[in-house]
Design a protein around this nucleic acid. Structure first.
Length: 691
RNA sequence: GGGGCUGUAGCUCAGUUGGUUAGAGCAGGGGACUCAUAAUCCCUUUGUCGCGGGUUCGAGUCCUGCCAGCCCUACCA
């Protein structure tokens, strides 16, 4: 067999959230396919990375008060932890926020420029003045201009279905700050994809690279049919830039503008490969500019057009290899329903692993996954019965019912006559391999289980438990068990892309590691047999219930947080109207004000004062400040003693009627009873400066 | 609104270029066995192939209309 060079990618997980069982459909599918190719002896690489750019990450970092780099580093670690937990094995895990990626983006960009595909257009977009950012549609809500329904999303009305641009909304509100955004015009860069129409028509419609329903979808929706009466439809220009602020890479020849996340994300596939090449002394062109190397992308149907139109267009323009195949899968439903975070059916990878073994899900997905785009359903009753009856009851049962009879003797030195069982299972290998190759994993599993269904009756008829009672039949007993264990081993080799763990344990049991598909074609003889240990536990309903329960609790906790956030979003605009924004100041201006954390060590009423309390503030050590604060109506002195506040420490002391005030305590609110002191978060210490 | 995909036994699905009485696993029923993680083996019940038209000697399979579900609908991802 010729050794193929195969480069595989899965969609890049977005660094803004945890991995859940829906993601894992794809990642497990990809991993199985990669493991299968490696098992067949091909030179196969799985190149992967986190997708790190875009508004969502930027907003999240702001909310959490840390840098984007911190957010994505944490996500990266969590993601890789989850993948390890599910035995997903990749050759490199990079990040789209890497030097390699930045450079490659520049190269691809230049090529696209040189090809004359880039043009500039002005775009009207809503701008959140409070957050200082342009708003993507999903960060805007407002009243539908058509039917007046309130609180509608930025792109179309959920009541009447009208589509519009966010700028057309009546009373638009930014969901980030609750403020009213204004329309601003900004320059955007576009790629004129239509110039590549002919190429994309050819590439998508050859039938080689895409599943037929995907090709139909693209033709029906984007490309049009040149043969039809309506003819081809022009492809729209692709808006490839975002004005600052944006978390991403700044476009070198267009300062102040950044590549849209979907531009740099797929280039991350190449960047990840480059990291691998540098580590392993290989050249990038060997993989991405080499007709002898195949490139396979695994993605979900939601990101079809990025990978089947824009991406091939980019690759073509930049002179890289085009995808050999884009494998597109459907979504996961849970017990027949769409996954839902709020109901708690979007099970996190970690939650699953806390209660259930990874192999079970890997096998269950494999038994459901086909080469088409149908959604697959995770039904827990079926999950339990499939794993238990197929794997434990049928496959592993072969070993557990025969291994201990040959623990002393090992396997027979010559493979006995098994009535052609091994031979016919060996020849079924080709069909199973084809099913794997075509991503028809469900078919592969069906074929393998058919073999198991033939192996068990063999043991049944041979009755090794009776043979062992008669010392004269020792040889026969060893032969029967040699056959049973070889049939078992053969099944495990076929299953090993799905169940690497089982393959490992089987290798140990029979003292012969399973490394290559071809080992399924020759019986193993004369090998010693180790003491049999359970290779996989039956799934118990209580474990599934425990996981469901844990997930529900997580969902409830999160939804409380979301509600709290939602309240912020309906905030009144009144404060901003009452006190409009002051003029811009520089960082230097700000730094003149020395804000410090202080502890109120004493608070008392001031005789004769209507509004003031006398506070004694400690900045640590002997540093004390006396401050008269106009908060008498809002706070009782007793409530204040001991708590931390923020004060202006270098304010010029001011002689007041009742004494010298040596600073100010920070508070918000219009005054009177509505005064709210600022409180530093736990952990801050008196005397620390606020930056 | 437009488009894609799906609809076969209680459940999950196979059904190749249209060709005899439509299949498998699980679940259900009956029996056997006891080596094995209450595992295994044998036998067995179940279908208006979403609905209605059409093409054909013949349709689960092709065409068409309808119904239902899922998904997509480009400066949203």
């Amino acid at each position: 067999m010729n050794q193929r060079k195969i480069l595989v990618t899965a969609a890049l997980p977005y660094a803004n959230g945890p991995i859940h069982l829906g993601h894992l459909v794809e990642y497990i599918q990809t991993d199985i396919w990669v493991r299968f190719q490696k098992l067949r002896g091909h030179n196969c690489l799985f190149m992967w990375a986190d997708d790190t750019h875009g508004t969502a990450i930027m907003i999240r970092a702001r909310k959490e008060g840390r840098s984007e780099e911190e957010v994505i580093a944490e996500a990266n670690a969590e993601h890789q932890r989850d993948f390890a937990g599910f035995q997903i094995q990749y050759d490199n895990y990079g990040s789209t926020h890497s030097d390699e990626n930045k450079k490659l983006c520049g190269t691809v960009w230049q090529a696209i420029r040189d090809a004359g595909l880039v043009k500039e257009k002005d775009v009207d977009q809503l701008f959140d003045t409070e957050q200082g950012t342009f708003l993507a549609d999903r960060f805007v809500r407002g009243t539908c201009p058509e039917c007046q329904a309130e609180n509608q999303p930025g792109d179309n009305c959920s009541k009447c279905g009208t589509t519009y641009s966010p700028a057309e909304l009546t009373n638009p509100v930014s969901t980030l700050s609750g403020s009213t955004p204004e329309i601003r015009t900004a320059k955007h860069l576009f790629i004129e994809l239509e110039q590549l129409h002919g190429f994309l028509e050819d590439w998508t419609q050859t039938g080689e690279h895409l599943q037929p329903e995907v090709a139909n979808y693209l033709r029906g929706h984007f490309l049009g049919d040149p043969q039809s009466t309506e003819g081809a439809k022009p492809l729209r220009d692709w808006d490839i830039s975002r004005p600052a602020p944006y978390f991403g890479f700044e476009i070198p020849d267009c300062p102040g503008n950044y590549w849209y996340v979907w531009f740099d994300a797929p280039i991350g596939y190449i960047a990840s490969t480059q990291q691998w090449c540098e580590r392993n002394g290989d050249s990038l062109d060997n993989w991405w500019k080499n007709d002898a190397a195949e490139i396979h992308h695994f993605i979900g149907k939601d990101i079809t057009y990025f990978h089947t139109l824009f991406w091939p267009g980019m690759l073509k323009s930049a002179g890289y290899s085009l995808p050999t195949k884009v494998h597109i899968h459907g979504f996961l439903t849970v017990n027949g329903e769409k996954m839902s975070k709020s109901v708690g059916t979007a099970f996190k990878a970690k939650t699953y692993l806390d209660h259930l073994p990874p192999s079970a899900l890997r096998y269950y997905y494999a038994s459901k996954l086909g080469s088409r785009l149908d959604d697959i359903d995770l039904n827990f009753d079926e999950f339990i019965s499939k794993v238990n009856s197929d794997l434990v009851g049928k496959v592993i049962n072969l070993a557990s019912r025969s291994a201990k009879f040959v623990k002393e003797t090992g396997l027979s030195t010559n493979y006995p006559d098994d009535g052609g069982l091994f031979e016919s299972a060996a020849s079924a290998g080709d069909e199973i391999a084809i099913a794997y190759e075509n991503c028809d994993f469900n078919k592969a599993m069906r074929l393998i289980l058919e073999l198991a269904d033939k192996a068990n009756p063999f043991v049944e008829n041979a009755e090794p438990w009776n043979l062992r009672k008669d010392p004269a039949k020792a040889q026969e007993l060893q032969d029967v068990c040699t056959i049973a264990l070889n049939l078992f081993r053969q099944l495990v080799i076929y299953l090993s892309p799905v169940l690497p763990d089982l393959a490992e344990k089987t290798g140990e049991l029979l003292n012969d590691p399973l490394r290559h598909w071809d080992q399924s074609q020759t019986p193993l003889t004369g090998s010693s047999v180790a003491k049999f240990k359970h290779m996989m536990k039956r799934i118990e309903e209580k474990d599934v219930k425990a996981m469901e329960e844990a997930s529900k609790i997580e969902a409830e906790q999160e939804s409380t947080q979301v509600e709290n956030n939602a309240e912020k979003f309906v905030d009144s605009e009144q404060p901003m109207i009452d006190e409009p924004m002051t003029e811009e100041c520089t960082i230097e201006d700000f730094m003149k004000v020395d804000l410090r954390v202080a502890r109120i060590v004493n608070a008392e009423h001031v005789e004769g004062a209507r509004k003031l309390l006398r506070l004694t503030l400690s900045l640590g050590g002997d540093h004390r400040k006396q401050v008269f604060a106009g908060i008498k109506a809002a706070y009782e002195p007793d409530q204040l003693v001991g708590r931390l506040v923020v004060m202006v420490a270098n304010l010029k002391p001011r002689q007041m009627k009742f004494g010298l005030s040596e600073g100010m305590v920070c508070a918000s609110g219009p005054g009177g009873e509505e005064v709210f002191l600022l409180t530093p978060d736990e952990g801050s210490k008196p005397g620390q400066r606020v930056h």
